[in-house]
Design a protein around this nucleic acid. Structure first.
Lengths: 228, 228
DNA sequence: GTCAGTCACTTAACACTGTAAAGCATACCC
DNA sequence: GGGTATGCTTTACAGTGTTAAGTGACTGAC
C-alpha cells in the first residue's frame, strides 16, 4: 500500500525540514535564517519547501505548534501538586525556565504579534483542556485556590487573576530574553527576580494563612535576594 | 555663516526622515516599511538616507532615542507625587498607557533584542538621572518607600524590587500588544488587568498600613474587576 | 568673479530575501 | 508497459539593505 507509505514519507520529510529549521533558529537566531538556508541544511533547494508548507510563515506556525506541545508537556507533571497555591508558584517557575532555555521558541510563541489566522481544529481540541493547555491548567489552579478560600476578598474571577499572573512571568521572561545584555540595567539574578516576583504577586492575592503555607513550601530564604 | 546653517539644514533633513519613518511605522507596522518607502515619503531615493544614517538599524536606534525622550517626558510630572507608594502606582499606569498608545514605539524600545552597541555619551548623561531616566525615577520612588518603612521586612534592595515591578507592567503591555487579538485568550479589560496587577504586586511588597494608604489614594472599587 | 572642492543627492548595481512558473525525472496506478 | 501524478530542480521576478560611481549645485578662496 504505497499510498499510505507515501503519506508517511511526506510526514518524515516535513519533520526533517522542521527539525533543520529549529536547529538553525536556535543556533543563529530567527532573523539570520532564510528558506534557502533551511533547505540547504537538508540538501534541498528553497522552492522544495513549498511542497510541504504554503509559506515561510506557515512553516513557522507549524514549528510554533510543536513548541507549544513540548511546553505543555513540561507543565503537565506539575498538575500532580496537591496544593493549588504551590502549584501556581511552580507553574510560574516552569514557565520562565522554559522561556530561558528555549528563547527562540519563546519568541515565536509569545513575543511576536499573533497572526490573524483561524485556529486549527486540532488546536481547539487541546484548548481549554487542563491536561494539554498550560494556560487552562494555570487558571484551573487559581480557581481551586479560590474555591478553597485562599484568596483575599474581592478576587472572584480566576481568568483575571490568571492573566495578571501570566503578565508577570511573561514580563520577566521576555525582558530577560531581550535585555539580558543591556548594559544600562544592573540586573539582579534571574532566580532572585523570579522568586521575588512570584512571592510578592501571590502574596498580594493570598490571605495570610495561604501565603505562609506557600512560603513554607517554596522557601523564604533571603538568599534569593543576593545581587549576583 | 553658511557652515553652521548647513548643519542646521542637515539636522532638519534628518528630522524629516525620522518623522516620515515614524509615521510609516505607526501606520503600516514595522515589517512593512522599507528604506525606499521612507525615502519616497519625503521625495528621496533610498541611498540618500545613507547620507544621514549609517544603516537602517542606526536610523531605528535614533528613532528609538527620540521615543525614549517623549516617554521620559510623560513620566516626569509624576515625580511631583509626594507619597512614593502612590507614585510607584502612577508610574506603572503611565508606563502601560504609553505602551498601548505607542505600540510600535514600545516594540522598538522594549520588545526587540537590544543591539550590542556602545551607549552614546548623551545617553549616559541622562542615565541614572531621575529627572530624565524613567527607570531611575521608578527605583528612586521605591527607595523612598523603603526609607519610609513602607515595605515588608526582607525587602532591602530597591533595584530588585524595581526590576520585579517593571517585569509586571512590561508583561502586561507587551502581551497586550502582541496578543490583544488572540481569539484563544478571553482577555479581561486592560484597565482591570492593570489595576489588579499593580494593586496585587504592590500589596505583596507593602506593609498593611502602606497598602491601605495606596488603596485609599487609587481607589479600591470592584468596578475594576468587570469583565468587559 | 571665477575656479576648485565639497556636499547632497541620483542612478546603477550587488547580494540577498520570499515566492511563482516551468521543466524534469522518478514512482505509482491501471 | 504507458499515462499520470508527485517531488524535486532550475529559472525567474519583485523586493530588500547596501555600496560605488556619477552629477549638479553651493561653498570658500584667490
Amino acid at each position: 500500500m504505497p499510498a499510505t507509505r507515501q503519506i508517511k514519507e511526506q510526514a518524515r520529510v516535513k519533520a526533517r525540514i522542521l527539525r533543520a529549521a529549529r536547529a538553525l533558529f536556535v543556533k543563529h537566531g530567527y532573523e539570520a535564517v532564510s528558506l534557502r538556508r533551511i533547505a540547504g541544511a537538508i540538501g534541498y533547494t528553497a522552492p522544495a519547501l513549498y511542497t510541504h508548507f504554503s509559506s515561510k510563515e506557515d512553516l513557522l506556525l507549524e514549528l510554533c505548534r510543536a513548541e507549544f506541545t513540548t511546553f505543555s508537556d513540561g507543565l503537565t507533571p506539575l498538575n500532580a501538586i496537591a496544593d493549588p497555591v504551590v502549584r501556581i508558584y511552580r507553574f510560574g517557575e516552569a514557565y520562565v525556565h522554559f522561556a530561558v532555555r528555549h528563547p527562540e521558541a519563546y519568541r515565536f510563541m509569545f513575543m511576536l504579534p499573533v497572526p490573524p489566522v483561524e485556529p486549527q481544529p486540532e488546536d481547539l481540541a487541546k484548548f481549554d483542556n487542563p491536561e494539554m493547555d498550560g494556560y487552562a491548567a494555570h487558571r484551573e489552579a487559581i480557581a481551586q485556590a479560590m474555591a478553597a478560600g485562599d484568596l483575599r476578598a474581592g478576587h472572584t474571577d480566576p481568568e483575571l487573576v490568571a492573566q495578571v499572573l501570566w503578565s508577570g512571568v511573561h514580563g520577566l521572561a521576555s525582558l530577560h530574553i531581550t535585555h539580558q545584555n543591556d548594559p544600562c540595567v544592573p540586573w539582579r539574578s534571574l532566580a532572585s527576580r523570579l522568586h521575588t516576583l512570584l512571592l510578592a504577586t501571590l502574596s498580594g492575592f493570598l490571605k495570610p494563612e495561604a501565603e505562609s503555607r506557600l512560603r513554607g513550601a517554596v522557601g523564604d530564604e533571603r538568599g534569593a535576594e543576593t545581587h549576583a
